[in-house]
Amino acid sequence: MKILNRKNILGFAAIIAFYVIVQLLINADVIDSYLQLNIVIIGINIILAVGLNLITGFTGQFSLGHAGFMCVGAYISAIVTAKLGQPFLVGIIASGLGAALVGLVIGIPTLRLKGDYLAIATLGFGEIIRILMLNIDYVGGASGFNDIPQYTNWTWLYFMVVISVLVISNFVKSYAGRACISIGEDEIASEAMGINTTFYKVLAFTIGAFFAGIAGALYANYFYFIKPDSFGFMKSIDILVTVVFGGMGSITGSVVGAALLSVISAFLQRYPELRMVIYSIVLFSIMVFLPRGLMGIKDIKLNFLKRGGSADGDSETR
């Protein structure tokens, strides 16, 4: 069938090849531990950005609490792997599902709100999650959760990134993705076209939360140690910045944006005193000079109509 067409086979081969090459470079110590650290950060940021892009970039729902879902995922994975001694896969799945559940519970009431009100409500929820973690002694409270087994390696990271990017881009390039985009464009018209806007908003929110949870698991099981303040309001902002920098509604943009911003951030570590000052100027310049992001204006792909409108109708162009 079409699943086994040339393009897909090539894509699959490229995905495997990239994995093998990097793995070999790690084995050969060409990629040292510092580089590995940065690769992990990039991977986690990609997952976070792609998930938030689905919510904010495509569906147009302004969320300032995305780090809260990462927080939920990180703590769940920490509990499952460190306290309950379960394998990492269980931790990852539990993190994703746990965060998705929280996303669902938060999303149903709050997604009735619009624009800045939604932003501020999600910010509130993100903070509430963080404060709850600060107060639960079982997970270490303010002093943090220690001795989490370090399971995250290149293999886990890479395939989690691939899965999240594939799932979200498949979702977006489909009737469901078009529904989400139409909500972002004009919610009233979308509803009038027969789209259950509440359902899709909550769905996008839940999927985004699911992957943020997985990103949290990868984070917790890489850094051994987590504390609630790592998942505060500023982390949510960082994710949002990545999405806007990459281009709202562009998956490629989120991937590239996450990689670039992580590199910039790593580079700025050398100037600890001025790091945040420079970062703020970089942010400001992006917003003034590149308000639509890196991939904000993209040409429409023309090939999909040739077969009388096939499934690859690239709705990514916004």
Binding site: I181, D186, A189, G309, G313, S315
Partner: peptide
């Protein structure tokens, strides 16, 4: 849906 294509508008 102004920023969507004509085709996508109808597909919705």
């Amino acid at each position: 849906f102004k920023d969507m294509t004509v085709y996508d508008n109808v597909r919705i």
